[in-house]
Design a protein around this nucleic acid. Structure first.
Lengths: 192, 192
DNA sequence: TAGATTGTTAATCGATTAACAATC
DNA sequence: TAGATTGTTAATCGATTAACAATC
């Protein structure tokens, strides 16, 4: 809409686009601190900025990624995370064949240096993209180095001190939701 | 626990492990139709089976994946989806350099044949792992072929007939949650 | 038997929705 | 002015939690 030259957006329109109740949208937007204008709506640029700030996109966040497999590569190559303030500084792996190589312009380092580099460089976000079997071990290493938050893609519930934030990405859970909805739809094909 | 030779599991224990209320666990498990035994708990194998069936893991689901980039490769290589009944039959791409190649033992086909193959092979799940710009186009092609459900990894809200199920994986949303929790934790370091 | 656990009803809590005055 | 929209209070709805009899 910004590209279309629009200056304002009403919660009515947002609600339509997202299939939500307009009141919900107003309540949620109120959290960002933005103030709209009756009859007009919200200033588009101001709203985008308010949301970005509220979600912490404006704070640049350096991160280390562990596990230089396909998924690790995919995350390193995705440009969209930049807009959210995330910068993946380096990848770590234990495979000697990978160490020293470059992936999407970032070096792959030896995982034995992970903890040390986290504390020395003051990195506070760790991304775990390893097989499940070693995820806890990697998490422990990150915690030892002083990590503050872990973005975990391994299908494991990590055990960490509760000062450390863990955000799990559960692809299998998403697949299960799809799978379950598909079963439901077939049971009651008339509805939905 | 099954590997440890345990035969029964109580919702009390499940609740502890997942940090939930035991009553919530009982209510949720009731949905699967399982019946527990007072004092004993639920039969472990029976429970695993009930959950698997409820979530549709027992129905094998053939899928086509579109977009043979890093993320597409990662999904094709991940064995865990098999346990949930998903089998990725083939990948599709428009890049001539990729077409004809094998990825994790599966062939990469020309995306121009996607719609035709979906209908001829009776495939009902499509996985979109393309750049955002072409995701809607791919979705349209899938719908034209008669797809029933789309697992969408592209950061786009797909527009499809409401008979088609769309399950979005929003990695950026997950990152935003992490980002936001990190901001909150720093505002109120005493709590949490 | 005593005590742990299930299944279920009732109470609480919070989120969503409805309603509406204020505003431009 | 009329009407669309915001901000906010009140009502509704559903999910979570508490309570407890039944059971093994």
């Amino acid at each position: 809409m910004k590209a279309d030259g629009q200056k304002f957006i009403s919660c009515t329109r947002i609600a339509e686009g997202l299939d939500l109740d307009p009141t919900s949208v107003r309540k949620d937007l109120a959290f960002t601190g933005i103030i709209g204008r009756p009859r007009i709506g919200y200033d588009l640029v101001e709203l985008m900025e308010a949301i970005a700030t509220f979600l912490g996109w404006r704070k640049s966040k350096e991160a280390f990624l562990v596990g230089a497999g396909d998924l690790g590569r995919a995350l390193m190559g995705y440009q969209g995370f930049r807009e959210h303030g995330l910068e993946i500084i380096a990848a770590f792996d234990k495979d000697p064949a990978l160490i020293g190589q470059q992936i999407h312009g970032k070096e792959v380092l030896d995982v034995t240096s992970l903890s040390d580099l986290i504390s020395r460089m003051g990195i506070f976000i760790g991304i775990i993209v390893t097989p499940a079997a070693v995820a806890q071990e990697v998490a422990d290493t990150m915690v030892a180095g002083g990590i503050e938050a872990i973005w975990n893609f391994a299908p494991v519930r990590l055990v960490v001190p509760d000062t450390v934030i863990v955000e799990n990405v559960e692809l299998s859970a998403s697949l299960s939701v799809l799978s379950s909805r598909l079963s439901d739809a077939r049971k009651a094909p008339t509805e939905q």
